[in-house]
Every structure is written in C-alpha cells, then in structure tokens.
Nucleic acid binder design. Structure first.
Lengths: 153, 153
DNA sequence: AGTTTATAATAGTCAGAGAAAGTCAGAATC
DNA sequence: GATTCTGACTTTCTCTGACTATTATAAACT
C-alpha cells in the first residue's frame, strides 16, 4: 500500500468524491505535489482510471493544459440500459419501440434529439424494403445496437 | 484553465448573444482590454470562430477598421443537411455512411453521442437479417431519415 | 474642384518562444 | 516475471513581437 501509484490513485478518487464525479488537475502540479516525474501521473491514470473501470479521461496540452477525469455513472444509466437491452428480445414493433424511446427521454437516459434519431432509424417507413416477416427483427437489432453504443460513452 | 484565449472567446460569445448574432470589435481596443498583443485576437478568432464552428468573420484595416463576427443562423445547418440528404442517393455502404457521419461531427452538425447512435443504426452487423442486395438501400433510408429528423428541430 | 501624395490608423501574418501533456523504452522494485 | 517508476524526447496548444498590408484622411498639388 506504500506504492506511490496507489497513493496518487486514492488521492484522485478522494478528490472525485469531493467534487462529485469529476476532477480537473494539472499534471505537473500533481507530480510535484507527490514528488515524482510527471509521466508517473500518466501511468496512474492509464492503469487505474480506465474506461473498463468506469472513468472517462480527457486532456489538453499547451499553456493552461489539464487532465480531467470523470466517473461514469455506470450504475444508473449503464445498468438500466443493459437491463432494457436484454428485455427487448429479438423482435419489436414500431409502436413498442417508440414507447421505449419515449421512456428513455423521461428517465433522462437520452436527449430529445437522440430520441428523434432513434425513432427515425426504427420507423416502418425506413424498413419498407425489409421483408415483412423480418422487419421487427431488424428493428430490434437496430434499437439494441443504438442503446449499446451509449453504454460505452 | 486560466487560458487567455478561452476568456476572450467567452467574452466574444457573450457579446454575440447579447447582440443577437453578430458583433463588431476593434482589434487593438479588445487587445488592450485583455492586456495582450493584438495578434492574440487573431489567434482566438482563427481557432475558435471558424467556419466549421458556424461563424463568419469579416474585417477591415485602416482608420475605422474593425473585425466583425457573425454566427451563422441555424437554417444554414439545416440547409447543409438537406444538401447532404439529397446527395446520398438510394444506396450507401457502411464505410461511406461512416465517412458522412464523421463529417457531421466535424462540422458540428451532430454530437459525438449522436454520431455513435447513427453508426450503430447503420452498421452491417445490425442489418445482417436484411438480404444482401437490399442492405445498402435500407441503410440509405435509415441514414437519410435520421438526418431528416434533425432538420425538424 | 479634383487628383495625387503623405501620414496615421488599423488589421494580418508568421515564425519562434513558452507552457503544458503524451510516449516509450529501460531501470528499479516487489 | 510483473508492476512501478524515471527521464529523454515528442507533440500540441498558446502567446508574443517584429514585420507587412490595407484603408481613411489630411495635405499638397494641379
């Protein structure tokens, strides 16, 4: 536990909790606080604050540069989404699909514009060329894949 | 975070909102307000008020010179979309579709999340159930309809 | 009065300095 | 052997200043 990386990791996690989900740091400043080389910060971030662990990291170089770390809200949106995705099944009608999409907006999972895009992508109109007996299958695949893409970011 | 460029950018954007879409400034005056060299203003404008970001900049030198910045009205984004929609044609491959979608992000027509949704909705994976010879037709219909939905709002 | 010329008042350009963060291979440690 | 740590080197973004280009206006000249 005396590993520097662990100490920095815990420090950052503490900060993230304090700041309620997101911090913005300066690499050099943090490095000098812990008396290490700046690249150590990169090491900590790349091993401890990965996407798989639910963090989203952005940075910018140059004067006034920074590194920002955000904790993704995987429990709320992500889990809920995954639950929905598995509950959709292999076929879905346009009507049911729209009900789902409207719910996502109500629950703040997606934006209004995103909802419009999703409805546009799953309408009967757009699937007119798909044989009737396959239409609801394709629609379910489209809807699920769109939702899946959101669990990533 | 204390980047001068950002401060000036925000100042100008605030002005643009106040003035409802267009401002006219004097380069030297603005520079002395922010205590920087005049060319800094050029830097801010060339990096933050680009055509891709929806701004139109004009200027004039000499006595009584000025720099004017106009925010392009949203209609033109819609026009741009309509132009693309009509140019897409009746069939499109997954690859070409992704190129288009990436362009929309570059031109600030859509958000990154929206792009992910669109890509998810037009992937080959999702259209696996559609007969091969119909696949590119369906994809074109989906893409166009998603874009159409954006021209409404 | 009309035209040319000089001067002052602007804005534009570009290369270089400065200020961050990123990378990666190798050393050190566990 | 895997993880951690280091440092030299790279890349990106910002800021500055010297120099250039353009325009308006006033002065000088027909």
């Amino acid at each position: 536990m005396a590993r520097l990386s662990d100490i920095i990791e815990n420090f950052l996690k503490g900060l993230i909790i304090e700041e309620e989900g997101a911090v913005e740091i300066q690499r050099n400043e943090l490095a000098s606080k812990f008396n290490c080389v700046p690249s150590q910060i990169n090491y900590v971030i790349s091993t401890r604050f990965t996407a798989e662990k639910g963090y989203y990291v952005e940075s910018r170089r140059g004067g006034g540069g920074y590194i920002s770390i955000k904790r993704l809200n995987l429990d709320s949106a992500g889990d809920y989404l995954m639950h929905i995705i598995t509950s959709i099944g292999d076929r879905i009608t346009q009507f049911t699909s729209e009900v789902f999409i409207n719910n996502f907006v109500d629950y703040n999972i997606i934006e209004v514009r995103e909802a419009m895009i999703m409805k546009a992508a799953t309408s009967d109109k757009v699937l007119a060329d798909v044989p009737t007996e396959k239409r609801d299958d394709v629609r379910a695949a489209i809807l699920k894949n769109m939702l899946m893409s959101l669990t990533v970011l």
